[in-house]
Structures are given as C-alpha cells and as structure tokens.
Design a protein around this nucleic acid. Structure first.
Length: 642
RNA sequence: GCCGGCUUAGCUCAGUGGUAGAGCAGCGGUUUUGUAAACCGCUGGUCGCAGGUUCGAGUCCUGCAGCCGGCACCA
C-alpha cells in the first residue's frame, strides 16, 4: 500500500498502486491538469508511471526546470512526428534537449527549405490542437531493433543495436508515430504551447565528419508564450551586441574578401588593441615575465622537430623561397621561445626563465570556422613560456593561475570557470610522461585552491592544460586563458639546462596565455559591454562640445589641455545643435561629453554628461581631469559618476 | 572542409525578365543653436566575380569567392 511523501513533507496513503497522475489528481484538479511529469525518489518519470511502494514524489509542472526540460524533449518528438507525417521518407535519428530548446536530426533525400520549416511548424501546431495522448511501452532490445528496421528507420535501429542486449527499450508514441526514447514526456501533445523552429543546419551522423551529413532542425520551446517572446527578445538583444556590428558602428576594424580571417584595424580599434597590450605588458613585466620577439618565418625543419608540421601541417602557411627552402609562417610561438632559451648554457640558477611575446600567428583555419574576430586566421597571442625545473611546476603554475584570475578581474570578469583538459587520443610522448604532467598540473590546481571540471581528452598534443573560461554579461562562455604543462616539446627541440650536479637536464615548459587571442578577447569585451567599453579602454574618453561658434576657442583650449594630460579627448565644433552632437557621440559610446556654452566659458567650467544620460553638473576642467584620472587608474572600479 | 542561406550606394535595406530606388551618412547652403536627430539642395552603383540562356538579366542557369547559421576542426 504506497505511502507517497510530497515535497512539503506531507504524506498521502493509497490502498492500491497509483499513477503520478492520480496522485496529482488527489491533491487537486488544477495540479492534475498542470502535471507534466513526476519525480519519484529523485527520478524523473511520466505522469502515467505507476507507484507500487512508498516513495517521495514531486509533481513536475511547467514552473520547474525539469518541467521545461520535459517540454523541450517532447517538442523535439512533436517535430519528428510532424516531419514524418509530411515527409514519410525522412528517417529520424536523435533529438536531444539543448540550452533554450532542442534539435532533431533527420536523414532525407533532399534538403529541407525554409518553406518546409514553416510547413512543419504548422503541422506541429495542428498536432498540438489534436491533443494526442503520449503513451509509453517497453520492448526487448532485439525486438525493438527489428521493429525500427521494419519501418525503414535504419539509424534508430543502429542506435538501439548499440544498447546492451538484455536491456529493455522504452518507446514513446503519439498518434501513429513511435520513437525510441528514455523519456519522460508530457502526457499529451496539447501541453506544448510555446515553441518555434529557429534554424536549419547540417550535422554529421554521430558527430563524425567521416559520416554522412544529416539535416538538423533547431527549435526553442518554453512553458508559455510570454517566455518564448522574452527569449526571442533576448536573441535580438544579443544580436545588437554582436562585435561585428559594433565594430562597424564604432569604426574599429573591418574584414574584407582579399584577406579572409585577417583584420584591418582602424585607428580607434587599434587604440583599444594597443591599450590591451600595454596593460598586459605592465602586468606580466611585474610578474617577472620577459618580453621577447621571435621570427614570423622559420625553416620547416623546426616545425618538423616540434611535431607541429605533422599534426597541423594542413593548417600551416608554407612558403617556398627562390633558394629552394621551405619556410613556415609561425602558427604559434613556443618553438621560437625555445630557440631563445637554448642560446648559451642555462644554469638551474636561472630558472624559472619566463619568456613571453605578443606573437602574431597565422593558422589556415577551415573556411567554415571563421567567425568575425572570434575565429580568425591571423591573430595575436599574449603567449608565454616558463622554463622550470620539475620542482618548480607547482609554484609557477599557482603564480600564473593567480595572475590570470587577477587580470580578468581588472576587466570585470569575476565569473571564471576552469576546465582541466587531459591527454587527447592523438598525442606525443609516453604515457609515463603524461601521467607525470597531469599529476603535476592537478597538484598545482589544488595548491592554487581552484575548482575545475574535467574536459576529457581535450588537452594539447604535447601536454595537459587548464582552460580559463569567462562568462560574459549575457551568460555566454568564452575560453580565453590557458596553462599547459609540457614535458615533451623541450626535449624534442633539444632544450636543456645544467643542474646542481653539473648534469644536463631537460626543463619543463609551461605554456600560458591570458587573453589567449587578443582579437578574440577584444571581441568578447565589445560584446560583454555592448560596445560601452570602460573609460580606460575607450578609444575616445571624452568629447568637448561647443553650443555655438562663440565657444570655439575655449573648447579647443580645454581639449588641448586634456590631451596634454594624456587623456584621449576630441572636440566637436560642428555647426550642429548640441542635441544632435550629444546623440551622435552617445551612439559612439563616448563615456563623457563635456558641453561648453557661454555660461561655462564665463565661469571657466564644463558641463559633464555621461553616455548613459546622467548629468554630472558643471565642474572645472581640472576637476574633471582629476576624477577621470582616478577612474582610469582604478580601471573603472571608481567611476566618475559614482 | 561539409549542409543550407545570403551578396544591390559608405551603412541599413526595397526592387520576381523591360530605362537601378529609399532612409541615413557625405558634400554645398540657410540656421548661432543648451543635453538623444533643424531646414533646403546636390553628389553617389561594372547590382560580389566569371561564364551562359534571352531581343533584353539586379532578377533565370552554371562555376568561383566572400559572408551568415550550424556541423566538423581549434596547437
């Protein structure tokens, strides 16, 4: 006789086995109607699930995160059902829940068109209206394989055939459509009220580029129309902060056809870029890293020795010179730094040797990978290599980790996730060396007191790495910094030092980058701030505006004085109304607008307005300069308007 | 690289086989202006590139390039 304990601690006893649906009904008809699924002893089940024993039960509705998950999963099924009804020849494959929605992959003889998408969506709406009951049944594995084979669903049959033989397979059906699924699902299609198909895409079967390409349909699904609309609005907002759009609006950079994946930096964009470099230079100098510069073009033999040519040759720019030598444009900086380390005999007393470079590298990325500044073929790394003894791995790694996190704080990124990427399938070096490298990096992570998640098999080919992932203002994640322990490359490139017993020893090389790619970091900053860069990074920090031409001389004088103090300031003497000028410079995201009319000239003041529209009142130019200086030096932690 | 879409003025975009358009920007003038768009006028295009079909192509077809959305890749 089951006793059901509800989340509020109350219990309900039944004298016969009951379904989740019946329990919900016993609590109230409203809850019964709202029930999408149940959580029995922590496990998510259908509302039709039968409870035989004493359990804890939570009724899952659209208000729960679990409920939303069930809605999305069921909407994916609804999509597949609609596709099968419209295009019986299409074969279904998989349809999982993803962030904000779901997708479903189909194999079909012709590509789906945007018109198909509209038709599918209409069919889905029709099926919702029909409010078909969703039912679950189980089948022995082999029967299930046969069942789907008979229906011509070869992909489904293949998936099921990979499940251990003795397991029972659960099938979900609605109308005359059936799919393999673990579930749970909503009780009927009428529960799916707010969804939208969003995009069509190709996707490889089982995620392997050697396999055939399937057609993926993406959709989003929510508990109600309001949430759906909010999501669509969120997408529009994200589009507004797209760095490609902002880059154009603010005249920061451009890309053009003749140089795919390479950036033409405009004066304002380059100002920001240089500010980033200058900042990083100060931070890494202070941390004892020495800046160097290595050739962009080096003989291919060096890349052969490092292993890069073999592993990444297809993605390297190679050039043959008239003297019949083959040079590679550097795709990374490590071999160059090793050459610098190798000059002269190094003593253990010199270690750690920390070399770093703002290295411009070129990688022939697959054409489909290019994406604005986020993924380019020519980019600048704040790349560094620390040559250390084995004993120094931990302390050095801890120092680097702390440096990276402190730097991110200066840019306003407090929410940093760290991932530990261990040995990849394709790698150089023995397993013993990898064991050692992974253990060392783990020890260092623990010593630094950081929490990380495992990113299995995602390490570099020469060593394990920590990946530092930033979360931006609208919740998107970006991998930027990295710290890698490398026990392979120094040996391959013949680097050594003399230890305290006068013996040759191979140093350990720690690879580190903080911005990662400056181009990418720049783009992340633009999107994070929606173009409103903090004043210390803004290409133009203030504009001095005249109201009539009577203030021209004063405006020039004030501007000149601020520029002489090192601020990035412009003036605007155009024959325009002050409202027009304010609108324009606000749209250009200039942090401070300094207005000078007859009143200000008479009193030797400027009226200060922020780009967010706040009036800071009239003040002497010197006062403004003093307060701006504090803001810049504190990197925005102390703001003028605060 | 793979699947699909897109490419028209500096920018955003309209233009479904018959003489290339709008708004903004730019330029010239009027206006001397007080915190998010004053007014008038003018300029501006090998319609991504190369072929083809047609009496006629921005529009239809083929190839290529770039970009966009995904997939795969990412030292």
């Amino acid at each position: 006789m089951p006793v059901v304990t509800l989340p509020d601690g109350s219990t309900r006893s039944f004298d016969h086995p009951v379904t989740v649906d019946e329990v919900a009904g016993a609590i109230g008809p409203g809850l019964r109607k709202a029930a999408l699924a149940g959580r029995v002893n922590g496990k998510l089940v259908d509302t039709s699930h039968v409870i035989n024993d004493d359990v804890t039960l939570a009724i899952v509705t659209e208000k729960d995160a679990d409920g939303l998950e069930v809605i999305r999963h069921s909407t994916a099924h609804l999509l597949a059902q609609a596709v099968k009804e419209l295009y019986p020849d299409a074969q279904v494959t998989i349809g999982p829940v993803i962030e904000d929605g779901f997708y479903y992959d189909f194999a079909f003889k012709r590509p789906f068109t945007p018109e198909d998408l509209a038709a599918i969506e209409a069919k889905m709406a029709e099926l919702v209206k029909a409010d078909q009951k969703v039912n679950r049944r189980v089948m022995p594995r082999n029967d299930a394989v046969q069942f789907f084979r008979n229906q011509g669903e070869l992909y489904k049959a293949e998936i099921i055939a990979a499940i251990p033989e003795k397991e029972e397979i659960s099938l979900y059906g609605q109308g005359n459509w059936v799919d393999l699924c673990r579930g749970p699902h909503v009780p009927s299609t009428g529960k799916l009220k707010a969804f939208k198909l969003t995009k069509l895409a190709g996707a490889y079967w089982r995620g392997d580029s050697r396999n055939e390409m399937l057609q993926r349909i993406y959709g989003t699904a929510w508990a109600d129309k309001k949430q759906l609309d909010a999501y669509l609005t969120r997408l529009e907002e994200a589009e507004k902060r797209d760095h490609r759009r902002i880059g154009k609006e603010l005249d920061l950079f451009h890309l053009q056809e003749e140089a795919p994946g390479a950036v033409f930096w405009h004066p304002k964009g380059w100002t920001v870029f240089q500010t980033l470099i200058q900042y990083m230079r100060e931070r890494q100098n202070a941390a004892g890293h020495q800046e160097v510069n290595a050739p962009e073009l080096m003989d291919a033999s060096l890349w052969q020795a490092s292993g890069h040519l073999e592993k990444f040759g297809e993605n390297m720019y190679l050039t043959k010179t008239p003297d019949e030598r083959t040079y590679a444009i550097k795709p990374m900086n490590c071999p160059g730094h090793v050459q610098i380390f190798k000059q002269g005999l190094r003593s253990y007393r010199e270690l750690p040797v920390r070399l770093c470079e703002f290295g411009k590298v070129h990688r022939y990325e697959p054409s489909g990978a290019l994406h604005g500044l986020m993924r380019v073929r020519a980019f600048t790394q704040d790349d560094g290599h620390c040559f250390v003894t084995e004993d120094q791995i931990t302390s050095e790694s801890v120092a680097i980790t702390r440096l990276i996190l402190s730097i991110y704080k200066d840019f306003g990124f407090e929410d940093v996730a760290i991932k530990f990427a261990d040995r990849p399938p394709k790698r150089v070096g023995s397993d013993e060396i990898w064991d050692k490298a992974e253990a060392a990096l783990k020890a260092a992570s623990d010593a630094a007191g950081i929490q990380y998640t495992l990113n299995k098999g995602e390490g570099a080919f020469y060593g394990p790495k920590l990946e530092f992932v930033l979360r931006d203002a609208i919740g998107r994640d970006w991998q930027c910094g990295t710290l890698q322990v490398d026990l392979n490359m120094p040996e391959r490139l013949g680097a050594y030092y003399i230890d305290e017993h006068s013996a040759k020893r191979t140093p350990v090389m720690l690879h580190r980058a903080m911005f990662g790619s400056l181009e990418r970091f720049f783009a992340i900053l633009l999107e994070h701030h929606a173009g409103r860069l903090p004043a210390w990074l803004s290409p133009v920090q203030a504009v001095v505006l005249s109201i009539t031409d009577r203030q021209d001389e004063y405006v020039r004088k004030v501007t000149e004085s601020l520029k002489n103090q090192g601020f990035r300031v412009e003036f605007d003497l155009r024959n325009e109304k002050v409202g027009f000028k304010i609108r324009e410079h606000t749209l250009r995201r200039v942090p401070y607008l300094l207005v000078a009319g007859d009143k200000e000239v008479a009193a030797n003041l400027i009226s200060v307005r922020t780009r967010s529209g706040k009036d800071l009142g009239a003040m002497a130019p010197e006062t403004f300069a003093e307060r701006l200086r504090i803001e810049l030096e504190s990197r925005g932690r102390e703001v003028l308007e605060g």
